[in-house]
Amino acid sequence: MIKLKELREELKTVLSGKTMDALLPPLLFVVLNSRFDLGMASLIAILSALMLSIYRLLSKQNWHYAFGGLFGVIMASGFSFVSGNASNYFLPGILSNVFFLVVSLVSLLVGKPIAAWASHLSRGWSLDWFWRVDVKPAYTNVTWIWSLFILGRVLILVLIYISDQTTQLFIWNTILGWPLTIGVLLISYIYGIWKLKRLGGPGIEEFTSGKLPPYQGQTRGF
């Protein structure tokens, strides 16, 4: 049985204070654009992202993440300012979701689900373990969950983008961002552990040590 404490620790690892970085710049952009103009809104959004990046660096957090968020805001603000359309602030995010959806579907097509790659990169577990026939189906199914979620998010955001409703774009981009993503990650983790148990394969430590069946299976982490 997955413990609540275990789920909290997994979520803490995933989130790592990123919510403010994702929420503050677009919120300032939408509010200031409605009161002033695109130039002011873009400038303040970029400055807020810059301050958050400096804070991340001073807190000795990963500089790749700190400047990754800043780069994203600069791109989004640039799109909207050059085009003269505030809704284009959210266009890079929509395009990145389309790109991730394509990558997810391609990974399923070639039999190397992206959920396995994500776990490998974040946890450092051996790739050979992920491709076992008694392990891979769990990551394949979770990749399908991710793909369907991203597809739904893209369709909703594209429809609102076409209608050129900037405030609605911000609201739905926020709702479909971290709130729902957290839910999907929880479902993925709980389902993934359950599926690994059903498959009866070895846990990563059992695989690494060369243990023979019967296996205890993966008891924590996915």
Rank of each mutant, 00 (worst) to 15 (best):
N33C: 01
F36T: 14
D37P: 04
A41I: 07
L43E: 00
A45K: 05
A49V: 00
M51D: 02
S53M: 12
I54T: 10
I54C: 07
S59D: 13
Q61G: 12
G68Y: 14
G69R: 01
L70V: 05
M75P: 01
A76C: 08
S80C: 07
N85P: 09
S87I: 06
Y89C: 03
F90V: 07
F90I: 02
P92Y: 05
G93V: 04
N97R: 14
N97D: 11
F99K: 07
F100T: 15
L101D: 00
L101K: 10
V103D: 10
L105P: 03
V110G: 11
P113Q: 15
I114V: 11
I114M: 15
A115M: 02
W117R: 10
A118V: 10
A118E: 03
H120K: 08
L121P: 09
S122W: 10
R123A: 08
W125F: 12
W125R: 04
D128E: 12
D128V: 03
F130W: 02
V133T: 12
V133I: 03
K136F: 02
Y139S: 05
T143A: 14
W144V: 04
I145T: 00
W146C: 03
R153G: 00
L157M: 11
V158F: 06
I160G: 06
Y161C: 14
S163A: 10
Q165E: 14
